[in-house]
Design a protein around this nucleic acid. Structure first.
Length: 501
RNA sequence: GGCUGGGUAGCUCAGCUGGUUAGAGCGCACGACUCAUAAUCGUGAGGUCGGGGGUUCGAGUCCCCCCCCAGCUACCA
């Protein structure tokens, strides 16, 4: 059996509601997962929640609740939201689940066994930011506050706890990233990490005393595992670790994370794995942030852009499209309803949707919906083939925005082809051969478009797929985008794929 | 302060190792068509390529200085 493509998103911190910033990451990862399934590869796609730590404890308490019920409710809300956005994760990992706790304990014990000197006792004193769940250095402060959480006070804290010898792994990790054993993309993120590594690493504290809401530190009575150390291990618990068979999924092929947490994923996490004698993940992709009129929409200082409102606007698929096509999965990008509306109208309603309508309407009108026998090539087939190749290249380098753009260009090519060949004139003139050639080429192009759009807009692509007389789903059918064959198949005109209110 | 990216038409962005009148999409104006969700197609207007020097026969594309934006980082998490 082929080893599955194992990809993960970051697990979100259970202290608020899901918003657009979270959604970008989940959708981007979902597009990647669906792309692999489209090509017939087995996929294991993990998402989940990060539920331990001081901030969750505080949020629950402030809400007059207990951490347990509180995180149950939040976890449910997130997972429901992701399903509403058509995320196709195979598993949902909560760090409060026994299977995760077991994996954390097992990994720590394995580190202890493999690299005994890498866990040691120490004392730390510093200013702790509850929002970040980490200590801050003087130089990181802005007006005496944490730059990420200016509304919260920093807490002077002194703790005796367990340290992890992160510094020992600097050269190893540096070499791994430079050699490509651990790929860090896009390049700007890799440069940042390399620069951090070159300037040296500090050992880190990985336990917390006096904090009950966490996983008990193995061998200690009053310490819990530092929430970041805990959280990262979810990628391993998602494989079933330490039960037999976990290594059919590990190492992960791809961790999709936000640019703000690349260090945890590209330095601390690989070091943890190395210390345990386990392989590093193959790749970390750090996406940018969604901005709202230039302002950051973060998990912590969340700008109030209602995800529900955005979904209700034009539907989940349209939101997915907008985030991938305009906001992008690499650098930061802006979200606004004005831009969303414009994209919806031009790319989807007047673009893909209208093309599907006009092409299927002509097939029904002139040929009773039966795609005529008229093999390629036409000028449209040639253009479509080239764009299909561009799409493949873009998808395989995770240039999701470029891939989406290729879809838009194919729609334009097809519209131009219709105008240039004027099938209605061919019908009037009774030029059946020429009309057949045009209609057949359009049918092939719609099939391609349904397949290319499937990772981005699964519901709409599925509706188009069905209207083209295809059974089942597009999953596993990518080869047909490269050699589309539609002759003899019966198409119907679908309901408006993207209605204009 | 250091480092890394970026600053190209109103908006979103392409422009590899320097080479004819700087491109695309959206939006806008005008025209055409009628298969289609009043959709589509064509044409046009619109840019001193952040600013200033320099190298070159020739620079958006190389070098130097400056300005602005974003991020990372800085006498221990």
């Amino acid at each position: 059996m082929t080893r599955p493509f194992y990809l993960t998103t970051a697990i979100d911190y259970a202290n608020g509601d899901p918003h657009l910033g979270h959604a970008l990451e989940k959708i981007g990862a979902d597009v990647i997962a669906r792309w692999h399934r489209l090509r017939g590869e087995p996929v294991h796609f993990l998402m989940g929640m990060d539920e331990h730590g001081q901030k969750v404890h505080q949020a629950a308490t402030a809400a007059g609740s207990e951490p347990g019920p509180w995180t149950d409710a939040i976890s449910e809300r997130f997972n429901t939201t992701w399903h509403r956005l058509h995320c196709s994760h195979d598993d949902w990992m909560r760090t409060t689940e026994p299977r995760h706790t077991r994996a954390v304990t097992a990994l720590l014990e394995r580190i202890q066994a493999t690299s005994p000197s890498h866990l040691f006792q120490g004392e730390y004193e510093g200013l702790y930011c509850v929002g970040c769940e980490e200590f801050k250095q003087e130089g990181q402060l802005v007006e005496g506050k944490c730059a990420e959480h200016p509304s919260a006070d920093l807490v002077p804290t002194r703790e005796r706890n367990t340290f992890f010898r992160l510094s020992a792994w600097r050269d190893d990790i540096l070499a791994s990233i430079e050699s490509g054993e651990l790929r860090v993309e896009p390049a700007i993120r890799r440069n940042e990490i390399l620069s951090v590594l070159r300037s040296g690493l500090q050992d880190i504290s990985i336990s917390r005393s006096r904090l009950p809401w966490g996983i008990p530190f193995p061998g200690s009575v009053d310490e819990t595992v530092y929430v970041w150390f805990d959280a990262l291990i979810n990628y391993l618990s998602g494989t079933g670790y330490p039960d037999e068979g976990w290594d059919t999924l590990w190492p992960a092929d791809l961790h999709v994370v936000g640019k703000g947490i690349t260090r945890f994923h590209c330095i601390i996490w690989p070091a943890m794995l190395r210390a345990a004698g386990l392989p590093m993940p193959r790749m970390v992709w750090a996406h940018g942030y969604v901005q709202w009129d230039g302002a950051k929409v973060s998990k912590s200082e969340g700008t109030a852009v209602s995800l529900d409102e955005a979904v209700d606007r034009h539907g989940a698929d349209a939101l997915r499209w907008f985030l991938m096509r305009e906001v992008g999965f690499e650098a930061d990008g802006d979200f606004s309803f004005e831009r969303f509306d414009a994209r919806y109208a031009s790319d989807l309603a007047d673009g893909l949707g209208n093309l599907a309508s006009r092409a299927t309407a002509m097939l029904v009108k002139y040929r009773d919906g039966v795609v005529p026998e008229s093999p390629p090539p036409t000028t449209l087939d040639d253009a479509a083939m080239a764009l299909t190749q561009e799409y493949v290249t873009a998808m395989s380098t995770l240039a999701l925005r470029d891939a989406a753009a290729a879809i838009g260009r194919l729609v334009s090519e097809a519209d131009g082809f219709v105008s240039a060949s004027a099938p209605w004139a061919l019908a009037k003139a009774g030029d059946d051969d020429a009309l057949d050639a045009v209609l057949a080429a359009l049918a092939r192009t719609l099939l391609r478009l349904a397949l290319m759009a499937a990772p981005f807009m699964p519901e709409k692509a599925g509706a188009l797929w069905a209207a083209l007389g295809q059974h089942g789903g597009p999953e596993g059918q990518w080869a047909r985008a490269e050699r589309p064959e539609m002759a003899g198949m019966t198409v119907i005109k679908p309901e408006n794929l993207f209605p204009k209110s």
